[in-house]
Design a protein around this nucleic acid. Sequence first.
DNA 1: GGGATCGCCTTGATCGTTCCAAGGTCAGCA
DNA 2: TGCTGACCTTGGAACGATCAAGGCGATCCC
Lengths: 339, 339
Amino acid sequence: MARVPTTPPTLADVAERAGVSRQTVSNAVNNPDLLRADTLARVLHAIDELGYSPNRAARNLRTRASHLIGMRIGPVYEGTANATMDRFVHSLVEASREAGYHVLLFAGDPEDPLAGYDDLLRSTTVDAFVVTDTYLGNPQATWLEERRAPFVAFGRPWDHPGAEHPWVDVDGAAGTDLATSYLLDRGHQRIAWIGWRKDSRIGEDRRSGWSRALHARGLPTTGLASRVEDTVSSGREASAVLLDEARPTAFVCASDTLAMGVLGTLADRGLTAGRDVSVIGFDDSQVAQVVSPGLTSVRQPLEDVAVEIVKALEGLLAHPPAIGPGVMLVPSLALRGTS
Amino acid sequence: MARVPTTPPTLADVAERAGVSRQTVSNAVNNPDLLRADTLARVLHAIDELGYSPNRAARNLRTRASHLIGMRIGPVYEGTANATMDRFVHSLVEASREAGYHVLLFAGDPEDPLAGYDDLLRSTTVDAFVVTDTYLGNPQATWLEERRAPFVAFGRPWDHPGAEHPWVDVDGAAGTDLATSYLLDRGHQRIAWIGWRKDSRIGEDRRSGWSRALHARGLPTTGLASRVEDTVSSGREASAVLLDEARPTAFVCASDTLAMGVLGTLADRGLTAGRDVSVIGFDDSQVAQVVSPGLTSVRQPLEDVAVEIVKALEGLLAHPPAIGPGVMLVPSLALRGTS
DNA sequence: GGGATCGCCTTGATCGTTCCAAGGTCAGCA
DNA sequence: TGCTGACCTTGGAACGATCAAGGCGATCCC
């Protein structure tokens, strides 16, 4: 292996070595079809010998593209089972790589969700954004759309049905329907719901899957639902009340965090999860995977989400831009001990 | 707010508007001290009016620096409680931001841990790397050192005590010592250890904290330790054997994953964690936080680690480079129900 | 046989910034 | 008045790549 030079080789170095012009080397890298086979081989050989790799800054400057995708990471919420970020980020990095992009992370000032976007955009540091937390009714999507900033959202434009930007989302209702139907198939009749407060669009979406599955079999939902904060203790308290007042034989929850609360209540009362009462969570977090006896949970196809997002980004950044409609994916059920 | 132009404003645009030359605008941004106060104000006003932000590609090209820090993210291991990545990545992004850097993620081909590094380096896409998984005895650190690539490791150079590169690590032995001493203070005499296989340097380090705490009080460790794979079922099995053969009143584990196995065994036997038998895990994962009744766990100061890493990077990228010694940080104990 | 066409490669200009060295302005001083 | 020096400002060049246009044989076709 050649020694590390003080300064990396440039296009001109390769050109000289291969006895061709700069442009020909550039073409060898970007448009190999334009070269005669023997010339191409000679250039590639020189590239290999010198260990040449195109200078990104120079390329970015000339092409006005960075091949970088920006993603804002919000604060890490402790005390919840929310573990989808790890998996999603990893999937996104992987999918981006295959499309020739890298992922640039930036921190969000919790006070100002727009901070950071503007600078990265104007300084042409990134080509586009992936926006993940559209559910808070936060202004990012609208703001970016106004700026004509290229971005793809992970999450439907709940509050703006006429939004023009591409998005990818997972059908939460389909997930809870799947979970509820699974329990119904196993003979459960009284299946309770513990979800989020009514102003959460995602929460209401997931809730609708539960209720539609029950209604589809002619079963009532009255008195079987509770809407609380997304904390373990809320899940614990809500399930205690529901057990006393409605005597459900199973719980479907809007999150693994809430489901962990249910498991706590069951343990308090000497009930065995999966035998006496079934429990199904949402997100298939690491918590669900390691808790005893294993928490059955709705699993989002984050790998597929990432692939679809990158596809949408490629369309967006193509010439001319192709803005497709939204993409909706369906979750699956990770079966474990609690059901 | 001004309309979004088709092409962002450049230094020349600002210069024209402020009635000065390009260089003066550049100085206003990079060396404000060189300008007279009124000129500076005029230029800054023009910058603000036009919404100017320096083109990163052009700046990177000229200065031969990208202000990007590369970090390889490995595969996501399912079925373990390993949740430190989220927290660490977030902390690193935050600390980098304050130092004027962004974090670029790249995927690792599991087959070839070196893939990706080389390209990013030669193409001057990143200025430096943060290497996180030094524990596998993997060749990254050595390889990067040979290439004279600037990088900081999260983790001691276990296998290469004479390594020249800067590193930051958390004193695992201090953490398990802390946990064990806490239990000793509460009256426990027979405290078992469940850790990783002997070829894990980190595992042996953490184990040494447990044994030294016991030895410091003149207590034996014989028969109280088990070394297994880092899975829930291994922890479950190991704790069952230990309970039968050594009758410990408490467990200290090398990971939350193993601790969750212990909790499973306790539940099987009708024992209450925290009352009948105490359990302390390692990493303060989300699992520890949401499981009932809360898993006491050793918590790594990842925020501090990130800050130290960025400090080391700044030294490394300064002119002239300042390579300091390693930095060792001490973990704390997150107290919860199981102890 | 001559002009148009095609395939393949070369040349000059350019992206937006910072570095460099020289130029301008003005007060202070003899 | 003319010189000096401090201080700010200026134009030109360079970073390393791609774009746009042009050169130059060989081939094709009438």
